[in-house]
Write a protein that binds this DNA or RNA. Structure first.
Length: 587
RNA sequence: GUCCCCGUAGCUCAGCAGGAUAGAGCAUCAGAUUCCUAAUCUGAGGGCCGGAGGUUCGAAUCCUCUCGGGGACGCCA
């Protein structure tokens, strides 16, 4: 069910009936809600094509629709807009259909796909920080939107566990503790099953190693050689690497869980490594790889390029592979393991060139259709100064510290507003976490995916207006009023019969849900659903302020309003779920 | 140097396969609570849509140029 499409079909038929292209009958919500509910601008376009007066054409279309009981008003306005207002009878019928639909009208794709989504990309040994926030929450939401729309989606965290950083870490530990068995020349398994260091040691080593390699070329060379040795399968290095990965993954899982982000697969760059030799072989045999300055490269520039397109360094002069090669191999791995129709990458905008190169190379080699590979890039999260976000001390804020921060602020707000009084410590803590994380996620998701945005902790944790907590609050009010109605024996939700303007407005918002889902899916833009959630919560709040529900005296009006409230609550919960936002039952 | 993203109300952002009077939220000011959670609701003020040209009956939206902010450009990921 899709109200906007049904209306477009009706108006399209009228266009066809007067000899115009039916596709011109496209209906959209009115820009002027004071004049009508919907509008069609097709007569203007038709006039241009047919070289006729647009108002006259619009009048003919209206005449063709005369007598239809879907509409209460059809008028021509301005240069030739067709303004459309629905009859309450039709609106009631549509609202009742939605009420009885398990998906609350939710859109479903006609042709579904198997999709692999890559929206993690955390690095081993590096704690998750705010930079990982957007990938995780945008990716989680898109995964849910695609699934709801019918696609089969497999989410992969795609760990950064195979680059030079691993060589840096191994060589760092070797410098610190050269006597460990892992470093003995020619050492063979078995190695100790317990890791030689703690997670904290590991997280300390990373920045130290990275900084040392940046300033000291000799140190960088050692790291490169260690990387090569690891990739060549030196047993001691492999065993150590496994420890690093295990330590890191355990911590990551907790952080992602706190954010409400789940992955189906915990694979990493290393999983694609076994495919590299045959891949290299194949590419060499087919002359896709060439040698340049001791490195194996793939030229991906095209004749019609309007920009510089550097080649891919597939294997560097040291013989080690970088992330271009692992990304290509990962596509091969996914193709063999899962045969997806499409692969989506939710990764920072700064990687645009990288993905363009990788997609071109894969297309060049015929491994995967370029148009089925999408880099869903997102903008940088900046501080109030417009520069990449830093803590007051100038460091990178860890994700777990951020979650604690918003949870604490939510807790303060709950307390000072008298919410969650007498709920008990455990429930209050759970509510505070949900409210804090909802504030964080909604603030991020409601920005257009592709733009940068300002991370302002004060605005995040202010709970008025277009915020996550406002949505949660609206949601608990629905639940509360329905619970009160049930406790008071107010009867069951019944047939929706619109009486007041606030009820009509709420019904119209409810009926706009399918197109919000469809557009969010098509454009891979969660903020469209954020807008819908906010419009819905707002329409419910206005309805709630204007109409009695549980204690309405007229039984049929009460039953109708209970249905409207119930549908609004269910659709709001569903929308929040699609955004990856958890909802408390009460607060 | 080349290419990409961004510039809309005091602040943070929507709107950009062209259409009527450019919308929200915050902030400011004025109101609403004997009644279902006031983190709510009602109303007001606030804009040469960075600037200049062009296409069009019509441009925040499309094209060109320009100014300002950010980013990416062969052996890091």
């Amino acid at each position: 069910m899709m109200l906007i499409d049904d209306l477009s079909d009706l108006v399209g038929e009228a266009f066809a009936a007067v000899g115009l292209d039916a596709r011109l009958g496209k209906v959209k919500p009115a820009d002027r809600p004071d004049l009508a509910q919907f509008q069609c601008n097709g007569a203007l376009a038709a006039a241009k094509i047919a070289k006729q007066n647009p108002r006259a054409l619009a009048e003919r279309v209206i005449t063709a629709l005369a007598g239809r009981d879907e509409f209460s008003s059809l008028t021509v306005a301005g240069p030739g807009f067709i303004n459309i207002t629905l009859s309450d009878a039709y609106l009631n019928a549509q609202a009742n259909l939605l009420r009885d639909d398990a998906r609350l009208g939710g859109w479903r794709k006609a042709v579904t796909e198997k999709v692999v989504m890559d929206y993690g990309g955390p690095n081993v040994a590096k704690p998750l920080h705010v930079g990982h926030l957007r990938a995780a929450i945008i990716g989680e939401s898109l995964k849910r939107i695609l699934r709801f729309s019918g696609d089969e989606v497999i989410g992969d965290v795609h760990l950064g566990d195979w680059g030079l950083q691993m060589g840096q870490l191994i060589s760092e530990l070797e410098l610190r503790q050269p006597d460990l068995p892992y470093f003995e020349e020619g050492a063979e398994a078995p190695f100790p099953s317990e890791p030689p260091i703690s997670l904290k040691d590991l997280e300390d080593m990373y920045p130290a190693a990275s900084a040392a390699c940046k300033t000291d070329p000799a140190r960088a060379d050692i790291a490169r050689k260690a990387t090569k040795a690891l990739q060549d399968g030196r047993p001691g290095y492999r065993a150590l690497w496994r420890h690093f990965v295990n330590l890191s993954v355990a911590a990551m899982k907790q952080d992602y869980a706190d954010l409400g982000v789940e992955f189906d697969l915990w694979k990493g760059e290393a999983d694609a490594d076994p495919l590299i030799p045959e891949l290299t072989d194949d590419l060499e045999k087919r002359k896709i790889i060439e040698l340049s300055d001791g490195a194996k490269i793939i030229r991906v520039a095209r004749d019609d390029d309007n920009k510089e397109m550097p080649p891919i360094i597939f294997v560097n002069s040291e013989g080690a592979v970088g992330y271009h090669a692992t990304d290509i191999a990962t596509i091969m791995d996914r193709k063999r393991e899962m045969s997806p129709d499409r692969i989506l990458y939710v990764v920072d905008a700064r990687q645009r060139l990288h993905f363009e190169q990788v997609f071109r190379a894969v297309d060049l080699a015929g491994y995967f259709d370029e148009v089925k590979l999408e880099h869903l890039w997102f903008g940088t999260m900046n501080g109030k100064d417009g520069k990449p976000f830093k803590t007051r001390e100038g460091g990178v804020l860890k994700l777990r510290d951020l979650i604690d921060l918003v949870t604490d602020r939510a807790r303060e707000r709950l307390t000072e507003s008298g919410f969650a009084e007498g709920y008990g410590e455990e429930e209050t803590a759970a509510i505070a976490r949900k409210v804090g994380v909802a504030a964080l996620k909604f603030a991020d998701l409601s920005n257009t995916r592709t733009g940068d945005y300002i991370f302002d902790i004060d605005r995040f944790t202010a709970f008025e207006g277009k915020t996550g907590p406002y949505l949660l609050y609206a949601n608990v009010r629905v639940r509360s009023v329905l619970a009160k109605a049930e406790a008071a024996g107010a009867g069951s939700p019944g047939e929706i019969m619109i009486e007041k303007p606030e009820e009509r407005d709420l019904a119209l918002v409810l009926l706009s849900f399918p197109q919000a889902v469809r557009e969010a899916h098509h454009r891979r833009m969660p903020h469209i659903l954020c807008d819908h959630a906010f419009l819905l919560a707002q329409a419910f709040s206005k309805f709630y302020a204007a109409c009695r529900i549980a204690d309405e005296k007229d039984a049929s009006a009460r039953a109708s309003r209970l249905s409207l409230a119930k549908s609004a609550g269910e659709q709001l919960s569903l929308t929040l779920q699609l955004l990856g936002i958890e909802t408390p039952d009460r607060m």
